[in-house]
Nucleic acid binder design. Structure first.
Lengths: 251, 251
DNA sequence: GTTATAATTTCTTATATAGAAAAGGAGGGT
DNA sequence: ACCCTCCTTTTCTATATAAGAAATTATAAC
């Protein structure tokens, strides 16, 4: 057991505050201090500095929230993720075939982080989804596609540390049933989210790998009522075809 | 002259590194250290911590770039900006009238920061613009609309600290000419970007105020060739009408 | 006004940091 | 294969910084 050498204690504490504000905006000093197990005097000093550098914003009512500077960073961060750029033309092509919402995501902190979205051109239904949101691995289409690439050990580790919270009545909350479904995903290469995240929404996802490493996933989302046996088949084939093309580019 | 009390020195240094990586991705330790005037040993320790908390990503070739965690923060940050939520229905309404790209921006660090974008439904031309990008105050439509709300003193301060860099041959680089144009904006309430940021793109913008405070701006962007005397008039009226409606909501 | 509660500042000791220097890679040339 | 150079990483210690208790100031409720 090697002793961890701490460096940047304030930086780590600042990150703790940021993470808390990510989950709970508009909180008072007291609340933040309690939630992060720090004294008020330490907390206010860190918050002052965070406000100074634009990471946090302080409102007139003395509550704190995440700052606009982060929006700038994120824009650059996405630009710096090569995957978004490389995949874009192929996802656009895919959209010409399937006129539905297409998402690109990466694996981040055991969740799917959305980094690009292509909206349908001729459909009028708008789904609420945004770049920057996250979805669990166990119930989203992209998530399951990625989870299916995990080793048995990794899946076990994931299940041991994550509760399968029911988002809808369709959400799979039984680890064994999930494991079985992952077997099917491994066979077919395609993962579904059949109203497991949100009612009426059906998603189909595939993973993206580079040199045996998971680099991300992409998916097609649509209202369930538009799904037919034919469109399902078409989507599966188009996704697998696009996956193959993109992975050839990544190699 | 009250002496500034420093707190969170590492945090401030970390922000300096982040800002550098925002501008220059994929840099080596040496390069980052030199650019930020820090020793390599200090820099690597901060970078290690930044990587640990997900703000920075370290690649196999030992270069550093902004981390995906920032994309999560940004998503929440935008959600926490009430302006985006409040204005959305009105901007959607506006888009039904004018089928062009509509942007919402806020004033951030003397620039316009884009926080929402509504794309045209029936037009096929796609403009490259993203949430998170910034535009100068002196040449963008939203920027000029905001600048026109500055006091003479504030405008002077802005001009003293910012060079009017020519983005295109149409960009106004003469401070006096800009000042004159701002007078017109104050009269009409509407600001133009006539191919001053990008060739072939014409934008019309208005500011948003709450209790005499600038809170943001929004604009319509379109290819110049689509602009007619009639559409220009229509856009101006629709923008001013929408501005009025939104500001009534903000009050 | 009075009281209670929260925000902010001050001050001092314990702690973390900065940077020089040394050690440990990685790569290029011969 | 070996050396040499440049870059990354670790170690170590004087010095600067941070943490927290307590005092002070602001804010809100009554």
């Amino acid at each position: 057991m090697t002793e961890m050498k701490p460096y940047g204690t304030v930086l780590i504490k600042a990150a703790k505050i940021m993470d808390y504000l990510e989950a709970q905006p508009d909180q008072s000093l007291q609340t933040i201090a309690k939630a992060t197990n720090m004294t008020a005097s330490t907390t206010i000093k860190i918050l002052d500095t965070l406000v100074m550098i634009g990471y946090v914003q302080k409102d007139k009512d003395k509550t704190y929230r995440l700052g606009a500077k982060l929006i700038r960073y994120a824009n650059k961060s996405i630009e710096q993720i090569d995957l978004a750029e490389i995949t874009l033309p192929y996802l656009e092509e895919l959209q010409k075939t399937i006129d539905e919402t297409i998402h690109l995501g990466i694996l981040n902190d055991n969740e799917i982080l959305y980094i690009n979205k292509l909206e349908p051109k001729n459909q009028t239904i708008r789904m609420s989804s945004k770049v920057g949101i996250t979805r669990p691995l166990y119930n989203s289409a992209m998530g399951k596609a990625v989870l299916a690439e995990f080793s048995a050990e990794e899946v076990g580790q994931y299940l041991a540390t994550h509760t399968l919270v029911p988002y809808t009545e369709n959400t799979i909350t039984n680890p064994l049933r999930l494991a079985k479904e992952l077997d099917v995903v491994r066979e077919t290469g395609v993962a579904y989210d059949d109203e497991e995240v949100e009612s009426d929404i059906f998603c189909t996802g595939v993973s993206l790998k580079k040199a045996a490493q998971i680099v991300g996933a992409f998916s097609v989302s649509m209202p369930k009522y538009r799904l037919t046996k034919e469109s399902k088949q078409l989507i599966n084939e188009a996704l697998l075809q696009t996956k193959q093309t993109i992975e050839k580019m990544l190699a």
